[in-house]
Simulated assay, not measured.
Amino acid sequence: MSDFNILSGHWNELQHDAELIRRHVFIQEQNIPENEEWDDQDAISLHFVVYDQNQAIATARLLENNSIGRVAVLKSHRGLGIGKILMLNIIQQAAKEQRTALKLSAQVHAIPFYAGLGFAVQDGTEHLDCGIPHIDMTFSLKSA
């Protein structure tokens, strides 16, 4: 795991690599329409990209409203703990910024992953986002 490196920065710095990962995971694998993947939040979010040596392999963004979104790991690197490393880095950054809580809309199949990090299902109501079942989850930074 020592070859993994995480960079955080603005969209204009990390756009190329974050876009590449999101295009593979969301648009190609999950068939999310291109016009639903890109939004105005990219320009104002803090982005994170994980690198395996020089290859971008995972990404996520932290929005101003304390939401974590667009969490994606390339298929070739899933199951190696990279998502956990990425999420812990985002939680650490949020704590450094003195945010008190985080939220995300998890794809239903990923609930156990986020629960293992300390996120809790908010009200249990599923909703569709781009045709994929999601559920809202929260994380308290007060106890982290």
Rank of each mutant, 00 (worst) to 15 (best):
G69M: 12
N65P: 10
F119V: 01
G69F: 09
G83M: 07
Q98F: 09
R61F: 11
S76W: 05
F113S: 01
S105R: 13
I82A: 09
G81D: 06
V71Q: 02
N66F: 09
Q92M: 12
Q122W: 03
A101I: 08
A120V: 12
G118F: 02
K96F: 13
L62K: 05
L86D: 03
S76A: 15
Q122A: 13
F119H: 05
I68L: 07
L117Q: 07
A94N: 12
L74M: 12
L117T: 06
K103S: 14
A120I: 09
K96N: 12
H109W: 07
G116S: 06
G116I: 05
A101Q: 14
G116T: 10
I111F: 03
I82W: 08
H77M: 08
L88W: 10
Q122E: 12
S76M: 04
S67M: 12
A110S: 14
R61W: 09
G81A: 08
Q98D: 13
L62W: 10
H77D: 09
G116P: 02
V121W: 04
K103G: 10
K75C: 02
I111D: 01
A94F: 05
F113R: 01
L102F: 04
K103Y: 09
V108P: 00
H77P: 05
R61T: 11
K84V: 06
L63I: 10
L104K: 01
N66D: 15
R70G: 11
Q98S: 13
H77S: 10
A115R: 02
Y114T: 00
G118P: 00
I90R: 07
T100W: 01
A106L: 07
G83R: 04
I68E: 09
Q93P: 06
V121P: 01
I68A: 10
A106I: 01
G81P: 05
A94V: 11
I90P: 06
L102Y: 05
L102V: 05
L63V: 09
L74K: 10
Q107D: 00
L104N: 04
A95K: 15
A101R: 14
I91M: 14
A115T: 03
L88S: 08
L86H: 07
P112Q: 04
V73W: 00
V121C: 02
L80V: 00
S76F: 03
V71E: 02
G79A: 11
L104C: 01
A95Y: 12
A95V: 08
A106T: 01
A72D: 04
G69S: 11
N89D: 13
I111S: 01
T100L: 15
A106Q: 06
E64Q: 15
G69Q: 08
A72Y: 07
Q92I: 10
V108W: 02
N66S: 15
S105V: 01
G116W: 08
A101S: 15
L88A: 03
P112F: 07
I82K: 02
G81H: 08
I90E: 06
M87D: 07
I111Y: 03
A60R: 00
F113M: 00
Q93E: 14
E97A: 14
L86P: 09
A95D: 11
Q93G: 06
T100C: 09
